[in-house]
């Protein structure tokens, strides 16, 4: 089968083999075209992130548990955050409770970096440390961040934190240190090895399944299908930033 050849051509280590076996098995039960599209995502370590992909997230507030903060806990563990919630502590993701002032309807939802297509933080950064990767993930390059905090002034979603204290014992995959600005990375280290962001994984594990992560450019992806079939909201849509994170049920 041509799919099989394709898969073998990209073989790279046990984990990938494992994934591909899984893919091949799944593929046997599906139309071949669907699988091929999926494989096109997979990226060898030496390949750069591609503009053919745009990572996005769809959050269904109806499924999001009121009082559940598993996504926050998972994020803190993955990124080595303290989990403290003082005014100077870093939070990549937070549970936001909102109440409609007209009818009193309440929603609970996770708020994180919205990974805008036109991110204000990237526009305002004097050194170019705030950046958007080709696949739409907005990151801070701590190597050239000078800690001016202008991006925090510019972000409409209050998604960024400043590391106020020296940090030790980081997760080797998530470097972070004093004096730089930081925010949600969609767990880029996990996405690059084709895993889900920690928050999404946690939300799936506890059965809420309120967070859907995937490629917005792929019309076949679950997130694209869901966005196509149901209405969704972009936070501060008036700013025209075309966010990568969308909400349902508000």
């Amino acid at each position: 089968m041509s799919e099989q050849n394709n898969l073998e051509g990209r073989a790279d280590g046990d984990r990938r083999e494992f994934l591909k076996t899984g893919a091949a098995i799944t593929g046997a039960a599906l139309a071949p075209g669907v699988l091929l599209y999926g494989v096109a995502h997979s990226r060898a370590p030496e390949q750069p992130a591609s503009a053919e992909v745009r990572w996005g997230m769809l959050i269904d507030t109806a499924k999001c548990g009121d009082g559940c903060s598993d996504c926050v806990t998972a994020c803190n563990t993955e990124n080595g955050l303290s989990g403290k919630t003082g005014p100077q502590d870093t939070q990549y993701i937070r549970k936001l409770d909102i109440k409609d002032l007209r009818n009193g309807r309440v929603h609970s939802l996770p708020m994180l970096c919205q990974h805008c297509e036109h991110p204000p933080c990237v526009d305002v950064c004097p050194t170019g440390a705030s950046m958007k990767r080709a696949d739409g993930i907005v990151l801070v390059d701590r190597h050239i961040c000078i800690g001016c905090r202008y991006c925090m002034m510019a972000c409409p979603y209050k998604a960024r934190s400043f590391a106020h204290e020296p940090i030790t014992d980081q997760n080797p995959e998530v470097p972070r240190g004093k004096g730089c600005v930081e925010s949600c990375t969609f767990c880029v280290q996990r996405v690059d090895r084709e895993e889900l962001p920690a928050c999404v994984e946690a939300c799936e594990a506890n059965g809420h399944q309120a967070m859907l992560f995937g490629d917005l450019m792929d019309p076949q992806s679950a997130i694209s299908q869901a966005l196509k079939s149901q209405p969704s909201t972009e936070v501060r849509a008036d700013l025209g930033l075309n966010t990568g994170v969308r909400y349902q049920g508000i």
Binding site: D123, V124, P126, C148, Y150, G179, C180
Partner: peptide, 24 residues
């Protein structure tokens, strides 16, 4: 600045879309 030791970065990396860079 959070990283005043990187003043040289501020002087050598410019994002011309940033009004802050223009200020410098």
């Amino acid at each position: 600045l959070g990283r005043p030791d990187r003043l040289i970065v501020a002087m050598t990396y410019y994002n011309f879309k940033s009004i802050f860079a223009w200020n410098m």
